[in-house]
């Protein structure tokens, strides 16, 4: 059956292949190519092959940035799991009416540009901003917290930007749960906690894992969050790439940084696929 139909399918897939080759594969090849070139005097690059760009990444300044980015991504992911998993779980257990309402509330922010929303948080977090005024008005604090342009502010921004992905991916796997399995576990002597970890948690693992991938990978590259909420105090790989491209005008070095970042994210996806298993029913993640 499958073999017979394969032919007609591949014809239908042709536009997708063309698109992928033109807009994904070729740019990546081009980027890798540039990463081995030399920086030009003014803009662009000279076609002198060099390993200088990669050597430069090994400088402590840039290595530290990679480590910092990984740490931030890790922190963000852990916090997103802690917030997003229960959120998605309980959302999936709501009545149909409330599910639709919650879904609506989650979607509304996506109608606005994330840059605008992040700048909204600037107003909230800045010294003597909305948050400070409320806290000081209530007498909880006496002076501005100076939250803006700090590491916690960046973590907050990351969580804010990425939590919906975790929530939705956990939600969709919890929604598919067959609750009679939980009853069976309880019937067989598992208390509710054990039944949750043995059954629900294990069965929603694919949702959680795809949420982790959807959180961890973007959080290494969301340079504008660090830019807007972290100012110049929190510099991530994404920020360096952007700076090298714009202010530094070092296109080959930016390309080399991007290649390394890409390799790191690919490794994480490979790890995810290994954990999730080859037959994981959570495709669509490359």
């Amino acid at each position: 059956m499958k073999i017979k139909r394969k032919h007609s399918f591949s014809a239908l897939l042709l536009p997708m292949y063309l698109f992928t080759i033109l807009f994904v594969f070729l740019p990546i090849v081009y980027m890798i190519y540039i990463s081995f070139m030399t920086r030009a005097e003014v803009w662009g690059f000279d076609t002198h092959v060099t390993l200088q760009n990669y050597m430069r990444i090994l400088e402590p300044l840039y290595l530290d940035t990679f480590v910092r980015s990984l740490k931030l991504a890790f922190t963000t992911t852990v916090l997103v799991i802690l917030i997003g998993y229960p959120f998605g779980y309980f959302m999936a257990k709501l009545s149909a009416k409330w599910k639709a309402r919650m879904m609506m509330l989650m979607m509304i922010p996506f109608w606005t540009s994330s840059l605008v929303r992040l700048n909204g948080w600037v107003i909230v977090f800045q010294s003597n901003g909305v948050l400070d005024k409320i806290l000081m008005g209530l007498g909880i604090t006496t002076e501005p917290l100076k939250l803006l342009y700090s590491y916690p502010a960046v973590v907050f921004g990351m969580i804010y930007a990425l939590c919906p992905f975790m929530i939705l991916s956990v939600y969709s796997s919890v929604e598919k749960m067959d609750w009679s399995l939980l009853e069976a576990a309880v019937d067989l002597g598992a208390n509710r906690r054990k039944a949750f970890f043995d059954i629900t948690f294990k069965m929603t693992m694919p949702g959680l894992l795809s949420g982790v991938v959807l959180t961890f990978i973007p959080s290494m590259g969301l340079f504008f969050v660090a830019d807007i909420l972290g100012g110049s105090k929190v510099v991530l790989v994404g920020n360096i790439i952007q700076e090298q491209l714009t202010k530094g005008r070092n296109v080959p070095f930016a390309a080399a940084l991007s290649v390394i970042l890409m390799i790191m994210t690919s490794l994480i996806i490979a790890l995810y696929r290994k954990i999730a298993g080859a037959d994981a029913n959570i495709s669509g993640l490359g």
Binding site: D178, S180, E183, V186, L188
Partner: peptide
């Protein structure tokens, strides 16, 4: 239910 000495065979096997 988890302390009861009865067990159930579910309709959909579960």
């Amino acid at each position: 239910p988890y302390l009861r000495d009865v067990n159930m065979v579910f309709q959909n096997y579960a």
